[in-house]
Design a protein around this nucleic acid. Structure first.
Lengths: 188, 188, 188, 188
DNA sequence: CGATAACCGAGACGGTACGTCCTGTCTTTCG
DNA sequence: CGAAAGACAGGACGTACCGTCTCGGTTATCG
């Protein structure tokens, strides 16, 4: 490390925390750099020095939150793994506001969209891909079925319901989706 | 009609057209009421009088555009209907910018989200529901399969790919999705 | 009179009354054509048809109010006339808000300034001029003293105090001013 | 001085200059915050941060302009002092537009009226008061004559003519007014 | 141990869009 | 054709944030 005062870990934490609190209290739409800085007792410059946009702050906060969370179940069979995976996914719905806000930002800002994909979405896809890979090896998935499409179906339904809110995202929904997928992929 | 100058259809058209042009040129994120008003040669007040937000302007423009477009195919069989429906859906992708912008707005603004659901999303779901309803009557869908979940799967995949852009939304994708769904729903 | 519906005297009265009431309640600065029209139950066009600006409405209302008020005292001597004139002038101070508002408008709008001069200010000057004319004939004013300057002194002091509000405009003030003027003009 | 970027003297000057230029070109009535900001190359917020209204901007500009100008003549006699004072006052008539605009604003806005009185009007009165005070000491003013009334007469006539514009404000006018005042105050 | 350098908080800066208000004009229906 | 109603284009308002900048001050490395 060169000379100069090192980055303040205290400021970083204060900013991430402030961002999550502001988001929780007022919603993503009302989130502002000014507001985060004020609540964190930080200067705006300090935020801009380390994050290119407020969405990146929230994404960092989310990644911190969800750091150790992506546990890939390995129950020995596809149905069990899928059920466990979806149940775990739905359990984190305290993050609904965060996820929906970040997706909105990603839809509006291509630069952030790339970061969101790489650091969040694709990490989740990889977990599901691992589950499906094991199922393929076990012969639980018929030939000619593209696992990537299955991933799209799972996350498509999850995100669609998360965003539209017209149907629940609970364990029953998980089981129903698992059942449908099994009918689709099971060799016969 | 009461007294007073009636609403100007010319102004309405100018505003909707201006909104779409601005969106096309600069993207949804850069869309502003000022910009729309200036390009339309309209006063801002005239916009605010009839639409609560810029998103509602764009939604109106979209509904005008897509007015007669929701044609429900009736080819006599589920596979044919699904293929035709998805092909028709994907063909309208000139609307990608519009749809993604409106979804972003819906994620940020609950009031607009309700309008978007009622006037756009649910109308599309209804079309698909009709197709599936006919398939159920024909016995092409096994008992115990909830058509609403199928709708979520179709639009989930469509929206997920529309938003993330990691995979194509073309006729091949449509056929692949159709095939997967048929495997899932066909009685045996 | 030509054909067509004649001007509505009822509307005219409603507008003048509404203008004075709005002025009284919210002050001249907050006076708007919209507000006057709304309170009068009149259309804005009706106001614009007959008055070029809100100031002209208020001026009309003032002239109606003060119509018969300019009574020129004729007590037989300059001191008595002056005292009576000033006392009468000061007595109308319920019009303070109106006068100050109109003067403000006249300072900002040359077109209205002309109307204000002709229809109000110069009418008042004429009254005072008549008093001074009689005093000259009676030999109460020394040669070489320009009555116009005396008028400026009287109305200058009145308006200055009316505007600045640093000193009272009451009968004592009138007597003090009268005394000063007499010392200045009395031949010796 | 506390922390934070200090106020920009350059911006302050640019704003005051822009205000005077706009006023000169388009008149006080057409003066707008937007216009001043645009011409000064400043943000509107920067103006609102330091001045509550456009009138306060112009008042600051005037005070800057007239800073060292209030020179109280001391010629040794009341007639000479008065003549010199009035001549000096009338000589500044390049400020007519400014003064009339500020007075209009003061008539419409009590908050600004207070500032205008304290920072401009009363400062001018004080100068005249000093002249009259010396005259009293010299015995040039008869007992029982209130100097404050004399100040009202002088500034009353000046402002009345400034506003109405029916009579000139030149050296001849000054001499005529001086003569009248002397007749009024000279002991006999 | 002092110079240098990068950080920090604070807050002013030039901008841009917001949503509201009012202006003066226009286009209806009604009497 | 006057009048009430109310929509229209236009433009200023005062506010909120943006992202940048310029302060004084702090905390590290390195000569």
């Amino acid at each position: 490390m060169g000379p100069g005062r090192p980055r303040s870990e205290k400021a970083r934490q204060a900013i991430l925390t402030a961002a999550l609190e502001e988001l929780e209290e007022h919603g993503y739409a009302a989130l502002t750099m000014q507001g985060i800085a004020a609540r964190a007792g930080a200067g705006k410059q300090t935020i801009y020095r380390w994050w290119p946009s407020k969405a990146d702050v929230v994404l960092d906060a989310l990644v911190d939150l969800a750091a150790a969370r992506i546990t890939v179940p390995d129950e020995g069979s596809l149905p069990a793994d899928l059920d466990a995976f979806l149940a775990a996914t739905f359990r984190e719905r305290g993050q609904r506001k965060i996820l929906v806000g970040l997706m909105a930002e990603a839809l509006l800002d291509p630069a952030f969209a790339a970061a969101f994909r790489e650091r969040f979405l694709f990490a989740r896809r990889a977990a599901l891909r691992e589950i499906l890979g094991r199922a393929v090896e076990r012969g639980e998935i018929a030939d000619g079925i593209d696992p990537e499409l299955l991933i799209d179906v799972v996350y498509g339904v999850v995100w669609y319901r998360l965003m539209i809110g017209h149907a629940p995202l609970d364990e029953a929904a998980g089981r129903e989706l698992t059942a449908l997928l099994l009918r689709a992929v099971t060799p016969r």
